[in-house]
């Protein structure tokens, strides 16, 4: 459905200088700053996939999305969406895609939502029949009726996001781009939006590409994730695989009688493993200790068994590393360390 082949985007801007004298200097300088926002990225997305596109701020997520939607022209490489080059056949591509930018509405600020939809119906050349059907469907999944006649500027953020999503889906596009669709929303609305996206994907086999900072979105929706950092694609794979590869840390929390004694236990000696294979933290307040380790080096049962042999354990909790931590780790250290 979507092919991105060796795409790069470079932004060139005039160099900025510090301070007041710098401002004057900038006036006469012709020095340029080149910035590779996206650097040789390639990936393919199949029909019906929901793909999470993540990365820290300024990593190049939005730039990639904007190239796929036809807003930006790549400096190098090319995108094909449904066989169409968005930069060469902008209008044809636009008919095929729906776009929601969480930070900014695509709707007409002063018009009621109903009027915006009337205009969009004409722009996308939707037949009356298809339009009625779509409105009924969107109404069901997004409850647009609640604010259908309200001017867009008076909508709450959650309503606005639903409205924008509705507007992006009005023409039933096979591809839907969502740039931070849940930003700033409360949990209930987030849930509604996610449910709606899921339902649309299931019912119409819509391909969805979403960027987000909310790991919840990823866990709920995405079967596949792409991670971008400093303009380069550093991970492309399934969520399970990411967890499998990078989420091998386990953390076992045990409630014990004497935390001080437990914290000082020579676990490595008992297990016959080096001291740096694990990490013990004591939590005096909850009278518990937490042992964390890599599950490929130590086994959970091994650790628990060994501790229980030496002291009384009242309660046990086992935790996998959360996706958020994995992602944080990847942003901070890149992939090199892990590989």
């Amino acid at each position: 459905m979507i092919k991105v082949e060796h795409v790069s985007k470079e932004f060139v801007s005039a160099k900025k200088y510090q301070g007041l004298s710098g401002a004057l200097k900038g006036l006469f300088s012709r020095e340029k700053v080149h910035k590779m926002a996206v650097d040789d990225i390639s990936f393919h997305i199949k029909k019906g996939e929901i793909v999470g596109y993540i990365g820290s701020n300024g990593a190049g997520k939005s730039t990639t999305i904007k190239m796929m939607t036809g807003i930006l022209t790549p400096t190098k490489g090319k995108c094909l969406v449904n066989g169409i080059d968005p930069n060469k056949q902008r209008k044809k591509n636009a008919q095929n895609i729906g776009v929601v930018f969480g930070q900014r509405t695509q709707l007409w600020w002063d018009l009621p939502l109903s009027e915006s939809f009337t205009i969009l119906k004409e722009i996308y050349d939707i037949s009356d029949e298809a339009y009625r059907e779509r409105i009924a469907f969107l109404n069901r999944v997004l409850s647009l009726d609640d604010f259908f006649t309200t001017p867009v500027r008076n909508l709450s953020l959650g309503q606005r996001m639903r409205a924008d999503l509705g507007a992006a889906l009005l023409h039933n596009p096979p591809v839907l781009y969502l740039d931070e669709p849940t930003i700033g929303l409360d949990l209930v609305v987030k849930d509604n939006i996610r449910e709606a996206i899921k339902e649309i994907n299931e019912k119409y086999d819509t391909t969805v590409i979403l960027t987000t900072h909310d790991i919840g979105d990823i866990e709920e929706l995405c079967s596949r994730i792409l991670i971008i950092d400093k303009g380069q694609l550093i991970y492309d794979g399934s969520l399970a695989e990411l967890k499998e590869t990078y989420g091998t840390r386990r953390r076992v929390t045990m409630e014990v009688k004497d935390t001080k004694e437990a914290a000082a236990m020579p676990l490595g000696q008992w297990l016959g493993k080096p001291e740096d294979a694990y990490d013990i933290e004591a939590d005096e307040e909850n009278s518990s200790i937490a042992v964390s380790f890599d599950k490929n080096q130590l086994q959970v049962s091994e650790v628990i068994g060994c501790v229980m042999q030496h002291m009384e354990v009242r309660d046990i909790q086992i935790k996998e590393t959360e996706l958020a931590e994995i992602v944080k780790e990847i942003y901070n250290h890149g992939m090199a360390k892990e590989a």
């Binding site: 005039a14 007041l20 401002a23 004057l24 900038g26 006036l27």
Partner: peptide, 16 residues
């Protein structure tokens, strides 16, 4: 004052 002065300068292209 300083900020306004600088932001006025910032749009260099249109300045000349």
């Amino acid at each position: 004052l300083e900020n306004e002065f600088k932001s006025n300068l910032a749009y260099k292209g249109s300045f000349y």
